[in-house]
Design a protein around this nucleic acid. Structure first.
Lengths: 353, 353
DNA sequence: GTGAAAGCGCTAACAT
DNA sequence: ATGTTAGCGCTTTCAC
C-alpha cells in the first residue's frame, strides 16, 4: 500500500493534493472537509477525503479561507496591560465565549500604544469586532470612527454608540456604604481613583450619593493619581496625619474605589500606627484576584469580571451576526448590567470608639 | 478637485482602487506602499500613491499578504491561563519583543484544552513560531512533532530539542536557603509544588541540595497538590499540627516553591496561632505581582519573568529568521539562563527561640 | 522605474 | 451529489 507523506512536515499540504490523493475534485474535497457542508457529500467520499487529508497531512489555511470568505474570525480584545488582575479575568471570559463560536481573540495591550495605532493594527488584521476593556475614551472614539462592531466592558462608557456590559455602579457604591453604615460608621473617608475615566467618576459620585442617602457627608475625599497601592498610600497619608480624634477630619472607615487603592489604605494605616479593621475599616471594590489573600482579607464589592467578559463576547458575536444578515438596519446598542455582590471579609468592623 | 471616498467605511479599499486613483499600475502601488521596496519607486509617484491610499481609505489586508508571502507573522504564546500572575508578565515581555519586529502574539490558554487541540489551532493559524510558557510536557512534545520553531520559557524543560530561557533554579534555591541559614534557621520545612512538571521537581531537589550543603536535612517536606494558596495551606497544616517544640518535626522556617504556596503557609501559620515571621519565617519564589502587597510583605526569590519573556521572543524570532535563510542546517537549541535576585521583605526573621 | 501576468489556497456561484 | 470556474487582495517574478 502506498502512503503519500508530506514533503516537509512543516509546510502543510494543500487541498489540491488532498483531492488528487482521494481521486476527487478539489471542491469536493473542500466540501467534505467542512463540517458545515459535509452533508452535501456522500458518506464514502467524505471518508475517502478525510483519509486522504490525514495521509498527506493537510491542515486548513486560515489566510486563504479568510481571504476568500472575507471573514477573519478574529476578535480584538483591548486591555490596558497584560498584567492587570481585573482585565485578566475579563479577557478569560471573552476567550471562553468566542472560541466556542469559532472566533479567536487577538489580545492587544493599549497602555503603551496610542489609540490610533492600536485601531490601525486591528483594522489591518481585519478583526470582525472588538471587546474594549481598555477604559480609554480615545480608543472608543477611534473604534467608532472605524466602524468596527464593538462592545465596551467594565471600564469605559461610550457616548452611547456601543453596546456595553458593566456592573451596576450605583448598587456597588450602596453595598459598600450601607455595609459601613450598618456597622455603625458615620465618619467615612472616600478614596477615589483618578477622575479621568467615566468609571472612576461614577464610582466617586455614587459613593457620595450613597453617603447622602444616609444624611452623611464624606469625612474626607482623597483622589489618587493612579490606581495602585502606592498612589492610594500617597493620597491617604496626609488625611490620616490630620485625623485628630473628634476633629473635623476624623474618620473611622475608608471606602476605596478599587482594591489596589484599598491596599494603599492598609499601608497608610499601618504607617500611621493604626490597625485595620480595629482603628479603621477599609472596603474595596472589584474583588480582584488575590483580594482574599492579603491581610486582613479585604472586604469588597465583587464585580463579576469573568462573567461580564463572557457576556461581552456573546453580545459582540450576536451583533456581528446580526450585521451580516440585516445589512441595512443598524440595531440599537444594548446595555447589560451586572448586579454586584458584597463580600464581607476581615477588613471591616464596627468603629472601636 | 475630486476626492473618492470609500463606499463603506467598513470594507477597506483594495490596492487596485488605490492604483486607479493614483493613475499607476497595481504593482507600482504595492511597491510604493511597502517600506521595504519604496525605494524602487520615484519620489513623486510614492507621494501620489500615498495620497491616493489615504483618500480611498486603503488598509493592507493581512490575509491576502499572508497567503501570498506564505508568512503569517503570528507567534503563538502558550500560557496555562490568562489570570496567572507570573505568566502574565512573561506574556507582556513576549509581546514587547515581537511586536516591534513586525510579529503579533496569538495568546492561547492551555489549561482547559488538550495539547493536541491547541497545537492544531496554532497550525491552522500558521503561526511562525511559539513561545511556550504552559509548562506542559505534552505540549512541548506536540510542538516538537509539528516541527514548529519553539522557545520554552520559565515553566517547562523539553527533552533538549528546543531553545529555552529560564531562571537558574539552583541559584534560586540557594538564595532562599542561604538567607534562612544566615538568619540562624536550622530547622527548615520545605513546601513543594506538585511534582508533575520539571520546574517543580527541580525546585524541590535544588532546595534539598542547598540544605545539604549546610549539612541540613529538611525538618519536613510537604508536597502541595496544586500551586494555590489553599493547597499550600492544606499541605502545611498537618505538619504545623505536630510541630511540638524541640520535637523531630519542629521547624522555624518554611521554604515554599512559589509565592502562592508561601501565602498558604501564611494562612496555615495564622490558623495554628503562629505569626510570620516571629514564630515562623516564610520565603517564596517568583516575586509575583502583589508579593509586596500581602502582609507581611513576602521575602522571595525574584525571577525576571518579563525579561525572560522578552528574551524568549527575541530568540524565537532569531530562530525563525535563521530557518528562513539557511534552509537545510538546523541550528542547535540555545539555552539562556537568568540569574535570580533575592528580595528581602518582612516575612523572614531570625528564629525567636 | 514601471507594467504585465501569474498565482498563494481556498470557497462559492453556477453548472450538470 | 459532484465538477467547473472564477476570483478574494496581494506580492513577485519577469519584461521592457
Amino acid at each position: 500500500m502506498i502512503v503519500a507523506m508530506p514533503a516537509k512536515p512543516n509546510e502543510s499540504a494543500t487541498l489540491r493534493q488532498v483531492a488528487k490523493q482521494a481521486g476527487v475534485h478539489l471542491s469536493t474535497a473542500s466540501r467534505a472537509l467542512d463540517p458545515e457542508r459535509r452533508h452535501l457529500i456522500s458518506r464514502d467520499i467524505v471518508a475517502r477525503v478525510e483519509a486522504a487529508a490525514r495521509t498527506v497531512g493537510w491542515r486548513p489555511n486560515r489566510a486563504a479561507a479568510s481571504l476568500r470568505r472575507g471573514r477573519s474570525n478574529a476578535i480584538g480584545v483591548l486591555i490596558p496591560d497584560m498584567a492587570n488582575l481585573v482585565t485578566a479575568q475579563i479577557m478569560q471570559g471573552v476567550e471562553t465565549a468566542i472560541v466556542s463560536r469559532g472566533f479567536f481573540p487577538l489580545v492587544v495591550s493599549t497602555r503603551a500604544t496610542p489609540a490610533k495605532a492600536v485601531v490601525d493594527r486591528l483594522l489591518w488584521q481585519r478583526v470582525e469586532g472588538v471587546v474594549d476593556a481598555s477604559g480609554d475614551a480615545d480608543m472608543a472614539r477611534a473604534l467608532a470612527k472605524a466602524g468596527v462592531p464593538t462592545v465596551l466592558t467594565a471600564r469605559a462608557d461610550p457616548e452611547g454608540l456601543f453596546s456595553s456590559v458593566h456592573a451596576d455602579r450605583e448598587c456597588a457604591a450602596n453595598l459598600a456604604i450601607d455595609h459601613l453604615y450598618a456597622l455603625g460608621h458615620r465618619a467615612i473617608a472616600v478614596l477615589a481613583s483618578p477622575q479621568d475615566i467615566q468609571l472612576s467618576i461614577d464610582r466617586l459620585n455614587f459613593c457620595l450619593a450613597a453617603l447622602a442617602r444616609h444624611g452623611l457627608q464624606p469625612a474626607a475625599v482623597a483622589i489618587a493619581d493612579a490606581s495602585t497601592r502606592d498612589a492610594g498610600l500617597r493620597a491617604l497619608e496626609p488625611l490620616l496625619a490630620r485625623r485628630a480624634p473628634q476633629g473635623p477630619h476624623h474618620f473611622t472607615a475608608v471606602c476605596a474605589a478599587n482594591d489596589l487603592l484599598a491596599l494603599g489604605a492598609y499601608e497608610a494605616a499601618r504607617k500611621a500606627g493604626l490597625t485595620v479593621p480595629h482603628d479603621v475599616s477599609v472596603v474595596g471594590q472589584n474583588d480582584m484576584l488575590m483580594a482574599d489573600l492579603v491581610s486582613p482579607p479585604l472586604t469588597t464589592v465583587r464585580l463579576q469580571h469573568y462573567d461580564m467578559g463572557r457576556q461581552a463576547g456573546d453580545l459582540l458575536i450576536e451583533e456581528i451576526e446580526a450585521r451580516l444578515s440585516n445589512e441595512g438596519t443598524p440595531r440599537p446598542p444594548r446595555v447589560i448590567v451586572f448586579r454586584p455582590e458584597f463580600v464581607v471579609r476581615e477588613s471591616t468592623a464596627a468603629p472601636s470608639a
